[in-house]
Design a protein around this nucleic acid. Structure first.
Lengths: 343, 343
DNA sequence: CTGAAAGCGCTTACAG
DNA sequence: CTGAAAGCGCTTACAG
C-alpha cells in the first residue's frame, strides 16, 4: 500500500510538501501540486485513517448508540439510524454503530479509546445511565430524547407535550367529547421513557381544560397482545368517539382491529396517531398522525454534534435543548363524531 | 488522557514492559504485572485505538455495507444488521455502518483508508458493482446474498431454490393442486436480485413435476399497491387454494386483504410465506412461513470473516458458499384445500 | 514556496 | 524476566 512517503518520492518532493499539497493548508506551486496529484493517481494513494487520526486527534467517525429494547418497536428505530447515518456522511463522517445491550460499557469503550469524535445517543431515558459517562468523556454528545438533566449535552426531541395537546385539541375542535389514548407499555415508563407520560399528562391537562373526557391506557408493544388491548379499551368505553394512539405497535395492529369490529375511520371512530410518515407508508396506516420526525431529529443531532466537534460551537457555549414542533399529517381518519341514536 | 508512557512511569517500568504486561504476549513477573495493573486503574488508562491500529495494522472494526433500496422493504434489513452487529461484538469487533447510496465509493473509502479489517456486504445483487472492488481490496469480504461470481469472497445465503421447492411440496402434500406465488417486484429482479427468480424458478419446476398448477406474479414492495396486487391475483385465480408469499410487504398486507375478502386461513385459503420469525412477530403475521434466518446469516458471515481476518483461514484456502436450508415454521395457516361444491 | 524533524501512542523485534 | 529503540503513516510547527 502506497504511503505519503511513496507519493513524495514519485513526485520528487518532501513528505511535508506532499501532505500540504493534499490538504491545501499552505501555498503550493502549481508545478509541485500537479506532480503530487499525478503521483497520488498513479499510486492509487489513500491516506491511512489510523495514522491520520493519531496525528490529528480526529477520527472523522461518530459513534451511534442504539439500544434495541425488548419492549420497544424495532422498526421505528431504523428511521433514526438512517437519519443520523446519512447526515453524518454528508458532513464527512462515518458511523460506528453500537447495538450492545450494555450501553455504558460500549460508550466507555469507544470514547476512552478515542475511536470516535463524538457520540449520538438514541432512545434516551429520563435518568439515563449513559449520561454521566458521556459528560465525563472528552468527546461531545448529542441526544435524541429528553433526559431530566440536560447539562453538558445537546438535546433534541419531539415536543411530546405539545403533541399531546394538539391531539386532544384536533378532535375537540371536530366536536369530540370523549376520547381514548393508547400509550406505550407502562414498563417503558418505569424504565424512564419520559416521552410516554409527557404526551399523556399534557393530553389529560388539555382535556380537562376543554371539558373532554379522556380515558388512557398503556398498550403492549407486541402483537398480538396489543390487538387485544385495543379491543379491550374500545369495549370498555363504547361512548368514546376518538382514539389517540401513541404506540407504534398499536397503530400497526389497528387496521385489523377495526376490521374485526366492523368499524371505519372516521365514520365510526376518529383516529389520530403519532408516528413517522415513513412508518405510516411501511405499514400502510391510513390514519392521520402527528409526525414524529425521526429522520429530522437524527439530522439535527448530527449537525449540532459536528458543530461542536469542529469547534464552531465552543465547549463553553451553552448546550441546546431543541424541541421539534409536532405537525399533523392529515390522512383523512378524523372527522365529526358519529351522531348517536337518541343523543 | 493517560498514555502507555504514563502507565509505565507510574509503575516504574519501561513502556514495552507495560505493553507486554497488558497484552500478555510475554512472561511478566507477578510483581511488575500488579504494579502495571494498578497504574492502569489509577490512571484510568485505555489504549488509543488509532495508535494501536497503526502499530498492528488491525483496527478491530468490520465494515457493514447496507443499502436501503427504494423498492425493498426496510424493516427486513434491520434483522441482518443486528445479526452482524451483535456477532461482531461478541468476537471483539465494532461495526462501521455504511448506508451510503454509492456503495462502490463507500467501499473504496473504508478499505483503502484501512478503517476496517474486513467487510460484510448486505443485499448482494447478481452482478454486484461492489464485488470487483472488494476482491481487489486487501481486506477479506463476506456476503449475505448470492452473486453469480463467488470468487474471492465468502458467501452466505438462504437456499432459495430449496425454499421454492419446499413451499410447493408442502401444499402439494396437503392436497393442493392450484397455487399462486407472489414474488418481490419485477424491478428487484432487473436490478439483479437473483433470490426472487431462484425461488420462483425452482417452485415452477417442482410444480411441473408434481402436476400442480402454479400462477406467479410480482407484487409491489409498498402499501397500498401490494394490497391491490393481492386482490387482483386472487380475483384472477378463483380456483387457487394455496398462496405462497415471497414478498415481505405482501405478507404484511395480507391479513387486511383476507379480512376484506372475508377469507380465513387455512379454512378458505392455505397461506405460506417466506420471512423471519422476528418479522412475523413484529407484524403479527399468523401465517406459516419458511424462515429466512437473517440473524443467522449475518452471524455466519461475521464468523467466517473473522476467521479470515485472524488468519485461521488462510488467504489461499478456498472460499465458501454456504446455503442455509429453509425451515418451515408452522403457524397453522396451511391445511387441506376446502372442498368445492360440485368438485 | 519548500524541507528536515519532531511527535501523535502504540507494538514488537532485538539485545541483554 | 526487562529495557532501549525502531517503526507504523500521518501532520505540523520550525527554519529557511
Amino acid at each position: 500500500m502506497a504511503t505519503i512517503g511513496d507519493v513524495a518520492r514519485v513526485a520528487g518532493v518532501s513528505r511535508s510538501t506532499a501532505s500540504y499539497a493534499l490538504s491545501g493548508k499552505r501555498a503550493i506551486s502549481e508545478d509541485v501540486r500537479t506532480r503530487v496529484m499525478d503521483a497520488v493517481r498513479s499510486l492509487g494513494y489513500t491516506p491511512n485513517a489510523g495514522a491520520r487520526a493519531l496525528a490529528t486527534s480526529q477520527t472523522m467517525v461518530i459513534g451511534l448508540l442504539a439500544q434495541f429494547l425488548e419492549d420497544e418497536f424495532a422498526p421505528a428505530m431504523l428511521q433514526y439510524i438512517l437519519g443520523v447515518s446519512n447526515t453524518a456522511r454528508e458532513l464527512g463522517y462515518d458511523i460506528l454503530l453500537v447495538t450492545e445491550d450494555d450501553g455504558t460499557r460500549a460508550l466507555r469503550r469507544i470514547t476512552d479509546s478515542r475511536m470516535v469524535d463524538g457520540v449520538v445517543l438514541l432512545n434516551v431515558a429520563e435518568h439515563d445511565e449513559r449520561l454521566p459517562l458521556l459528560r465525563a468523556a472528552r468527546q461531545p454528545g448529542a441526544l435524541v430524547g429528553l433526559p431530566e438533566d440536560c447539562s453538558g449535552v445537546d438535546v433534541f426531541d419531539l415536543d411530546f407535550e405539545e403533541a399531546g395537546r394538539a391531539m386532544v385539541d384536533h378532535l375537540y375542535k371536530l366536536g369530540h367529547r370523549e376520547l381514548v389514548l393508547v400509550s406505550q407499555p407502562d414498563h417503558v415508563v418505569e424504565r424512564g421513557g419520559a416521552y410516554v407520560w409527557r404526551l399523556q399528562n399534557a393530553a389529560h391537562e388539555q382535556a380537562r381544560q376543554r371539558g373532554v373526557t379522556l380515558h388512557s391506557v398503556f398498550g403492549a408493544s407486541h402483537q398480538p397482545e396489543v390487538g387485544r388491548d385495543l379491543h379491550a379499551v374500545l369495549d370498555a368505553h363504547p361512548g368514546a368517539t376518538g382514539l389517540l394512539v401513541n404506540n407504534e405497535a398499536a397503530a400497526a395492529a389497528l387496521p385489523s382491529v377495526l376490521h374485526e369490529r366492523g368499524l371505519t375511520a372516521p365514520g365510526d371512530l376518529s383516529v389520530l396517531g403519532r408516528y413517522s410518515d415513513e412508518f405510516a407508508r411501511t405499514f400502510s396506516l391510513p390514519f392521520s398522525s402527528i409526525e414524529s420526525a425521526p429522520d429530522r431529529l437524527g439530522r439535527m443531532a448530527v449537525r449540532q454534534l459536528v458543530r461542536r466537534i469542529e469547534g464552531e460551537v465552543g465547549p463553553g457555549e451553552p448546550h441546546v435543548v431543541r424541541f421539534v414542533s409536532p405537525e399533523l399529517v392529515d390522512r383523512g381518519s378524523t372527522g365529526a363524531p358519529p351522531r348517536r341514536t337518541g343523543g
